Simulated scan of single mutants.
Amino acid sequence: MNTQDRPVVALTLGDPAGIGPELIARLLARPETAQRANTVLVGDPWLWEDGQRIAGVQVATDAVGALADVRGRAGTTRPAFLALDTVAPADVQRSRAGGAGGRSVLQVLDRCMDAALAGDIDAICFAPLNKQAMKIGGMQHEDELHHFARYLGVTGYFCEFNTLGDLWTSRISSHVPLKDVASYLSVERIQQAAELIYRSLLASGVAAPKVAIAAFNPHGGDGGVCGREEIDTIAPAVQALQARDWPTPAPFHGPFPADTIFLKAQAGEYQAIVTMYHDQGQIAIKLLGFSRGVTVQGGLPIPITTPAHGTAYDIAGQGRASVEATWQAFQIACRMGSTQRAKALAAA
Rank of each mutant, 00 (worst) to 15 (best):
V176H: 09
V181A: 00
V108Q: 05
V176C: 13
F126H: 15
T163W: 02
G138V: 13
T163Q: 06
S173C: 06
E144Y: 10
E188N: 10
T169C: 12
D180T: 12
L106M: 13
F158V: 12
S104A: 15
G138F: 08
S173R: 02
L129I: 12
F161A: 02
F148R: 01
L117Q: 14
L109W: 07
G137H: 09
E188Y: 03
D120K: 02
I136R: 08
T155F: 02
M139Y: 11
R103C: 06
L109F: 08
L106R: 09
E160V: 13
F148L: 14
A118G: 03
L145R: 01
I124M: 08
L164G: 01
V187N: 01
R171I: 01
I172F: 03
A123F: 06
A118K: 12
F161E: 01
Q140T: 15
F126L: 14
G119S: 15
D122W: 01
G156W: 07
A127Q: 02
G153R: 02
I136N: 05
A133W: 13
Y151C: 07
Y151E: 06
G165P: 04
G165W: 09
S186P: 05
E188T: 13
S174E: 04
S173M: 05
H175G: 03
G138R: 05
L167V: 11
N162D: 10
W168R: 00
W168N: 00
E160H: 11
H141Q: 13
L106K: 08
F158Y: 13
D122V: 10
Y157R: 03
T163S: 09
C125M: 08
S173F: 01
P128G: 08
G119K: 15
G153C: 05
L164C: 08
E142T: 13
Y157K: 03
G153F: 00
V176A: 14
F161T: 00
K135A: 14
D143F: 02
K179Y: 06
A133I: 15
K131F: 04
S183T: 11
V181T: 10
D166S: 11
S186Q: 08
V108N: 01
M139Q: 13
Y184A: 06
Y151K: 10
S104I: 14
L129R: 04
I172M: 03
H146Y: 12
M139C: 13
L117G: 13
H147Y: 14
D143R: 04
L164I: 15
L185Y: 04
W168V: 00
P128A: 10
F158M: 09
G165V: 11
M134G: 07
P177T: 10
F158Q: 04
Y184Q: 12
L167C: 07
Y157G: 04
D120V: 10
C112G: 11
L109E: 05
E160S: 13
G101Y: 07
D180A: 13
Y184H: 14
G101R: 05
V154Y: 00
S183E: 07
F158L: 10
G138A: 11
M113N: 06
V187H: 02
A123I: 12
H147M: 14
P177K: 05
